[in-house]
Structure formats: C-alpha cells, structure tokens
Design a binder for these strands. Structure first.
Lengths: 213, 213
DNA sequence: GACTGTGAAGCCATTCACAGCT
DNA sequence: AGCTGTGAATGGCTTCACAGTC
C-alpha cells in the first residue's frame, strides 16, 4: 500500500474540509471548487488543492470537486467509514460534557463506556450510558473492542489512568488534562489543551498593549 | 520596544514550560536544566533553549535556570502577570464544564460572566456565578472590562454569538464550537476543536490497520 | 474561461554542533 | 565538566505560478 508522508496539518485540515462538505451536501450543493472550500474554512485555495492531492486526484479541471464523492473520500481517508467506540475515563463536568457533546458521538465515533472511581458518580447515567467503576475498564474495552481511550480526569490522576489504558490495550489516548503523559512507543497520545490557546491570546493581547495599539 | 517574530509554536510551548515550572516550584526545586524541562514536557533540550532564548538570557551556563525566576518570566511573557476576566457564552454542558474547569480559572484567568439565552438556564448559578441573559452581554463586559470572549454554544449559533462579541468590543475570541467563525481584521479568533485530534488518531490507526501492524 | 494538479520557490521551525561562560 | 546561547544546516509546510484538462 502506498503510504506517502502526509503532514499532520494536512490531516487536521482534512477533518475541517470534511465537515464543511457535510454542510454543503446537506444543503444540496453538488459541486465545489477549491476556492469555495478555502473561503468556507479560512485557508488558501492552493492549500486545499495540495492537501487533497496527497490522497488522489479527486477533482475535475475546469469544474471542481463532486461534493458527495469528496465527502465520501475524506471520511474514508480519516478512517471514519467505520465505527470507533470510545472509552471515557472521568465523569466529572468535563467527562459529562464530552459524553453529551455531539463532536464525540458523530462521524464514526460512539461513546461505548464511561468510567469513574468516585462512588457518588458510579451507577448514575449519562444519557443511556451508565457510569462504571474504573475496575471494569479492562473487561469492557475488551468486550466492546475499544482501541481509543479518552482522559477527562484531574491532572493528578491522568498518568495513572493512562497507565491503565495502556495495560488494557488501548492503541491511542486523547488527553484532555493539562498533564504531560508518558506512554510506551507505538501508543499514540494526543492532547487537547483547554488553556494553551487562551495563553496565546493573552500573549498577543499583551504585545498589543505593549505597542499601544 | 523590541518585538521579534516569535513562532506560535514557541509561545504554546512556553505555556507548557510555565506549568511545568509551577510544579517544580511547588515541589521546592530551585534550579532546572533545559534537559530536565525537555524530559518533563516531552520536547528536545535544544528546543527548550531556543524557545527561551527568543525572550532573553534567562539561564546561567554550566548551571541551568532558576525555577522561580524563570516561572515569573514565563508568566510575564504570556501576559499572565495580570488578571484576564473572561466572558463565556453558552451555559450548556460544555459551558458548565469550562466554568468549573480549573484551566480557565487559574494562572491569570477569571470567569467574570456566563451568558445564555435558554430561559431554563438563565438565573441559575454555576458556583458563585449567575447565568445572565445574552442581552446583558454588552453592559457586563463593559463594566467588567472583559476583552476575551469564549464561545461554548452549538455550532449553528456560534457565528451569531461571535458577531455580538465583536460588536461588544471583544478583542479576542476562543471558540469551542466546530464552526468556522468570521471576524473582522484585528480581532483574534482561536479555535479549540474537540474532535480534530480524534480524527488524527483514526487516520493513523487506519493506516496502521492498512499496513497490518 | 474555469479550475485542478504540481514542480519550484520561499518561508518557517526544528535540530545540530559548538563556542562561551561558570 | 556542565550547561546555556546561537549561527548554520536541515527538514517540513505553504505559497506561487503555470501547464494541463474540461
């Protein structure tokens, strides 16, 4: 299988294009140009074309891209043509929000288990999902064939939870805590940091103030 | 004032170094080397030195960096030596989680207002904060001197909320919805996407499966 | 005429390797 | 000897500009 080196930034943008295409498709639009995609998501047309070209020749010169087809391709490339069950550890406010947020329960994702060790939470329901004790994590992820774990616990517990996830065979971990997590080679760890972007903002606003703009 | 061009990636890492330094300081550690910081946050030592060198000569050759001093410098650089009041729009599960999450209420940030238009939410409290109707956004942000708005509403309302924020004088917006938001030049918009990293994971796991690894 | 696909150029960020200080 | 600060080299991503196709 041909596996070229694709920039991560390209894959991230592919997610964004894909969602934009879903919207176009829902609105009954059948054809789209790189320029229209670019306008819609805020990048340059050349970027859109280059990104898509990593994966094939999806467009028609002089015409553009077929929305339905391109949508299908992007979903396929991102691996979203199959279902990905997720296991979330941490049923506090953040875990709760993730369970009910559409982002993690559409486009191929399904939350298949929520775990917590806080006895006031275990047994309660989030939607039609029952919060299970962390001890049941290994058996449930095996039964449900879960390969991706989501960390939504407090910083101080994050590494511990990650270790359990690794031991239970998770192949990838999405970490919503600000902790730096260590995992063995071969396991993918991704962090979603809720405050880094905020500190980028204050850095920039600080500069602005310093320059009296 | 000296304003060199600093890579955004450098500023983001500075946030991470800064948090790591807080931890060291709390543990009573007084001196740290670029190698130790690198190990602690998962980057290369050269990267740490280069990043810090953008802002000054904070270290001592042969010794390392003074933890307390470097922490203070990083906070100053990030603009976190002052208080930044935030206004969150959207008091659903995500907004609620953000209000209660420590990430947005430490290190210089303070949630100074939460707004929603859903009448079942308005008037309720999150901690010691009362959810206000969106109509009060302009007057409250003026009174509280808020420059940064946080969008935690559903995708379909995100642009509308952003427009209100811009009209009310927000200088920067942190957007937690997957919508692509348009703002005038001079206003900073940053997106925190809850699912892009997840789709990066499925992309990579998909490749792995394709290669039978 | 319109729009894609792509080599080449340009730009930005990271890594290397070492001089310089303690 | 140990560690920082930094020019130089490398690597990676984005933009440019245009040939190719409809």
């Amino acid at each position: 299988m041909k596996t070229l080196r694709v920039p991560e930034a390209t894959v991230s943008r592919l997610s964004i294009y894909s969602r934009f295409l879903e919207r176009l498709d829902k609105n009954g639009i059948t054809t789209v140009s790189s320029g229209e995609i670019a306008d819609g998501v805020g990048v340059s047309p050349a970027q859109v074309r280059k990104d898509l070209a990593y994966f094939g020749d999806f467009g028609t010169r002089g015409v553009g891209y077929n929305v339905k087809d391109l949508l299908k391709y992007t979903l396929k490339i991102l691996g979203l043509d199959q279902e990905w069950p997720l296991a979330i550890v941490g049923a506090g406010n953040l875990g709760f929000a993730l369970c009910t947020n559409r982002s993690l329960s559409i486009r191929g994702f399904r939350i298949a288990g929520v775990f917590d060790n806080n006895s006031t939470r275990v047994g309660k329901r989030i939607g039609n999902l029952e919060i299970k004790p962390l001890a049941q994590f290994p058996e449930i992820v095996k039964k449900e064939n879960i390969r991706i774990g989501v960390i939504a616990v407090h910083t101080s517990l994050a590494q511990e939870v990650a270790d359990i996830m690794v031991k239970s065979g998770m192949q990838a971990i999405l970490n919503f805590s600000p902790a730096t997590i260590n995992v063995p080679d071969g396991i993918e760890i991704r962090n979603v940091d809720l405050s880094i972007k905020l500190e980028l903002i204050t850095f920039n606003l600080g500069l602005r103030t310093a320059q009296n703009l």
